[in-house]
């Protein structure tokens, strides 16, 4: 491979996986006030994979650029990723606006071009809206090959050939492509590390750039309208039966048999 790896890792600050989401009183989305936020777990796996590649392929990785679109609070997840081993970071400051996957993909595409990225690793989806769009849209916009839901990544840094195992119904599929490419991560790809205290302190000195969507030539106005958000209907209580005969009778009564 002629040039070194320049990895971009887009990450999202999302409601923590341990929080039980509740619909807000206006029914426009989930309640975010007083709720714990963390890095989207799939994105954390993407950060880990990028850092692992950098550690394993000594000298083959020129930089890992971690990017997040969000409010200034998204700086937390950028700092955390820097503490885990990313080199530079960019906050695309969209304020409190909720940006759609296509908008995010457009901004990331622009940044990837500016940064001359040749490998983008990101979570297969964010656990807040579960869209599972951004990686695929980004691949479309850049016209790069993509592998979604990766469970194993193997890079041949001399040929630029990347072999990826990903989970499909009923098993695994192994595919390969050449850089530049996009990989979205699944849960089984790796186990993210802790940011150790010395690295948290060192991350304070790593670059964190802030850009506005307009700087990237992207209009963040939404194309979709959220009509209403509601809780799933509560599951009705079951009944207890006293015998197998009664069970069969009840199932027949409901047309299940």
């Amino acid at each position: 491979m002629s040039s070194k790896l320049r990895i971009m890792v887009p990450v999202k600050r999302a409601i923590d996986f341990a929080v039980k989401p509740r619909v807000n009183s206006a029914k426009t989305g989930v309640e975010t006030a007083g709720v714990k936020f963390s890095i989207n777990p799939f994105d954390d796996i993407a950060v880990e994979e990028a850092v692992k590649i950098k550690e394993a392929k000594k000298g083959a990785v020129e930089s890992i650029h971690v990017v997040s679109a969000g409010s200034s609070k998204a700086q937390e997840v950028l700092r955390q990723s820097l503490a885990k081993g990313c080199d530079t970071s960019t906050l695309i400051d969209v304020g409190d606006a909720s940006v759609e996957p296509l908008t995010v993909a457009k901004m990331l595409a622009k940044l990837a071009e500016e940064d001359k990225s040749n490998l983008i690793i990101l979570g297969k989806q964010a656990i807040d809206d579960d869209s599972n769009h951004t990686g695929q849209m980004l691949a479309g916009l850049l016209n790069w090959p993509q592998v979604t839901a990766a469970s194993k990544v193997d890079i041949n840094e001399s040929t630029g050939e990347v072999t990826v195992e990903h989970e499909v119904d009923g098993g695994f599929e192994t595919v390969s492509a050449s850089l530049p490419m996009i990989i979205t991560t699944d849960l089984r790809l790796n186990t993210p590390r802790y940011a150790t205290l010395p690295n948290i302190m060192k991350a304070k000195k790593k670059p964190l750039k802030t850009v506005k969507p307009a700087d990237l030539g992207v209009d963040i106005a939404g194309r979709l309208e959220t009509v209403s958000v509601s809780e799933p209907p509560p599951r009705p209580a079951g009944i207890k039966v006293n015998s197998v005969d009664e069970l069969i009778a009840k199932l027949k009564e409901r047309g299940a048999l």
Partner: peptide, 12 residues
């Protein structure tokens, strides 16, 4: 910010 991050690391 770094104290918060550190608190998370220790808790984990």
């Amino acid at each position: 910010e770094e104290e918060e991050l550190f608190k998370e690391t220790v808790a984990k």
